[in-house]
Design a protein around this nucleic acid. Structure first.
Length: 156
DNA sequence: GCCAACGTTGGC
DNA sequence: GCCAACGTTGGC
């Protein structure tokens, strides 16, 4: 299988790229996703070694701030079974998990964050899902061509 | 803080 | 199965 690419969103107040960089093994569980389409990506599609663009949302200047990679493929997200967790799902059981997560590892931080307004100026990225109106997915697919463009305009 | 866009829920 | 109501996301 050829390498695939993804983009994950995070609010920097909850877990920023800097947090990932500081984490043990520079790796974290990408959990708490409670959207079926994103779940399907996590469970079925994201493969070891896939590239992941790291995006900061809900901030003054939303931007792609760096890159990571998938280091563990989809497995059940424990937080769905934890009654004390915000992500608890009473309908999920360990036999029939509903929500999944992957592990991602830090790769690099861009010297300059690629803001939404900057990305919109790049014609090759016009079709990028991130830039489409009303998009709220927290995990989305990125084409190889889009990945290449992003890596070309980024410096790190 | 506002509001458009979207997903989910629940009454019927 | 439809669709209105509601909650959440996220850019601005």
């Amino acid at each position: 299988m050829t390498q695939q690419y993804w983009l994950v969103k995070s609010e920097p107040e909850s877990f920023s790229l800097a947090d990932l960089k500081k984490a043990p093994q520079q790796t974290t569980y990408w959990d708490g996703v409670r959207n079926y389409q994103a779940r399907n990506y996590l469970r079925d599609s994201m493969k070891l070694g896939d590239g992941v663009l790291y995006y900061h949302s809900n901030t003054e200047a939303p931007a792609i701030v760096g890159a990571a990679k998938v280091v563990r493929e989809g497995y059940p997200d424990d937080t769905q079974f934890d009654a004390k967790s915000n992500y608890f799902d009473a309908d999920a059981t360990p036999d029939k998990p509903r929500w999944y997560r992957v592990d991602i590892q830090y790769m690099c931080e861009f010297k300059t964050p690629l803001t939404l307004s900057y990305l919109r100026e790049i014609p090759e990225l016009a079709g990028m899902q991130l830039l489409k109106k009303g998009n709220r997915l927290s995990v989305m697919a990125v084409s190889a061509a889009e990945w290449d463009v992003v890596m070309r305009v980024a410096s790190f």
